[in-house]
């Protein structure tokens, strides 16, 4: 996992990525119990992103490093990584406010805040998102004031009232 994170960091250093943050199940694991997953979701801001969002420069840079695309993912050091451009205002905000964390107390990485993970779950709305919200409510330390601000900003308050425990 260290090599995966080092590769992501090198993509930022080389200007291939403007910013990245881990999302999905792996991000959830920073705040709650480990859950089964097969891929690593990485939200990205691409530099000089115009009207057309394309991952081609990123995939080209990864190919030069020896990492090939496999379906929706790129296999980086044995881990299928799925890159997702921030495609709506909630994700853009989540990336902007992602937290820097240390993996193995050595390697810096960026992870979406738990409050944004909850909001993304509410917005996505699948059954597994409902489960994840339940785990967060039970296990994570949530800044409720911060969460309420996000929910209000993105019109998710009603769904939160339905989903929260």
């Amino acid at each position: 996992m260290e090599k995966v994170l080092q590769t992501l960091n090198s993509l930022v250093e080389d200007g291939v990525l403007g910013q990245y943050a881990i999302g999905g199940a792996m991000a959830a694991m920073f705040y709650a119990e480990p859950v089964m997953t097969f891929d690593l979701d990485v939200f990205v801001v691409l530099p000089h992103q115009g009207l057309l969002i394309t991952l081609t420069p990123l995939y080209d840079a990864l190919q030069k490093r020896g990492y090939e695309a496999q379906g929706e993912c790129v296999n980086i050091e044995g881990v299928p990584v799925q890159f997702l451009p921030a495609y709506n205002p909630l994700l853009e905000e989540a990336l902007k406010e992602a937290e820097e964390k240390l993996y193995q107390e050595q390697i810096p990485t960026w992870v979406l805040r738990v409050e944004h993970l909850i909001a993304i779950c509410l917005q996505t709305g699948r059954e597994k998102d409902k489960d994840r919200v339940r785990h967060f409510c039970n296990e994570a330390q949530i800044n409720m004031e911060y969460l309420q601000g996000i929910l209000k900003q993105h019109g998710l308050e009603e769904k939160w009232l339905l989903w929260k425990i």
């Binding site: 996992m1 694991m29 119990e33 480990p34 089964m36 097969f38 964390k101 993996y103 039970n138 296990e139």
Partner: peptide, 27 residues
């Protein structure tokens, strides 16, 4: 069970990753 979940949630992230790989091996 609830306590176990909270204990698991408090583990270091590298330990959680090790557990994920173990779950993948099982699944």
């Amino acid at each position: 069970k609830e306590k176990r979940r909270k204990d698991l949630a408090a583990l270091p992230i590298a330990e959680k990753v090790r557990m994920v790989v173990q779950m993948q091996r099982m699944a």
